[in-house]
Design a binder for these strands. Structure first.
Lengths: 189, 189
DNA sequence: TTGACAAGTGGAGATGACCTCCATATTTTC
DNA sequence: GAAAATATGGAGGTCATCTCCACTTGTCAA
């Protein structure tokens, strides 16, 4: 699956360039105002090149998403290594909200693009899911968190938070969801 | 906003017909394999008629969603009238999961179609939000639920549940989310 | 270096979905 | 029952998407 044949130097350069430009345009929230062909021109490549690297808008989104996930996973590992399990989990979830808040356009664009191909999202976020699962499992081992609730439920809640980015009081409600989840996790059976 | 001028009899009939057919196709999950023009033919009307009633796929989704919301709100009122507040809230949320589970294709299609125009979703689900807010408020009055968490957070969690309908263990995780929310809502000591 | 082959590029143009438009048909009104 | 108002349907224009291939660029062995 990750058996990517080594790309030729210029191809790799173009690919990176496209992803970088995509992240930029996503974050600005301008992606849907743009013809896909025009995005190619904006990135300085021909349409053929764009389509060879990313056959669809969704494929491009997936690549960007991959980068996001990798960064978040690094953060999860760092927290897990430096804090008690329960605090690490809480810090991670709170930080996730901060992150989404700071990149509203990106979050919104990714959510929109992956809405129909949610399978792709699940695919891309497998690593993130693993990170969350690890954080929860560690907290369970510490006895800080109940063991009868699947970590997948936390993923779902996060999903809801990032998918609902247009609600008027998004930030406050997102924080409340995290509060509910954390308090709900703490409560013994 | 709801100041709809009375539609001519045949127009009303066609409109209802389109919504009914849409619900059917949504639920079967076949909507995205269909050209919008072909959907018109499938429903037995011309493309012009389809476009006059519903200028976009999203507009059609919104109409279907409206019906769903109305049914759910009725259920909320019924529960609220017949059960203690906390139980009504729990029953409503659990029932919501049942409902989504029973209409997977519909939920998925609606979620996809409204992903970009989430504003429209918020618009259409105002009534649903009000119902949830009422249920929560009643439970707060009973002292069964904390008062420092906004009902919007519950909406967000529900949003996550319906948006994540492709997860392998969806049903179990959805139930867990509800558990977390309900337990989280009970006053922390 | 150089030649030769592999790999990648870009953009013109085919394709096909979306939506508009209006001559015709149906309801409603008086 | 005739005129006015309202709604219909589908032919065809428009425009974003994606394919295709003649050409350029990179790689590698000698």
């Amino acid at each position: 699956m990750t058996a990517d044949k080594p790309l030729r130097a210029d191809a790799q350069r173009n690919r990176d360039l496209l992803i970088a430009k995509a992240r930029e345009v996503f974050d600005a929230g301008d992606f849907f105002d743009l013809r896909f062909d025009d995005f190619a021109r904006l990135a300085g490549v021909g349409t053929g090149t764009l389509y060879r690297h990313f056959p669809t808008r969704e494929a491009l989104a997936e690549a960007v998403y991959h980068g996001e996930v990798a960064a978040l996973c690094d953060r999860a590992r760092l927290l897990q290594a430096t804090l008690p399990a329960a605090e690490a989990l809480a810090a991670f979830l709170r930080g996730m909200v901060d992150h989404i808040d700071a990149h509203e356009g990106l979050a919104r664009t990714l959510a929109t693009l992956m809405a129909d191909r949610a399978g792709a999202l699940a695919e891309g976020s497998r690593a993130l899911e693993q990170a969350v699962t690890d954080l929860v499992a560690a907290a369970v081992r510490d006895g800080a968190v109940r063991d009868d609730v699947d970590a997948g439920a936390v993923m779902m809640a996060l999903h809801g938070i990032s998918a609902a980015h247009d609600r008027p009081c998004w930030r406050a409600e997102a924080d409340d969801v995290i509060t509910l989840v954390l308090d709900g996790l703490r409560r013994p059976l």
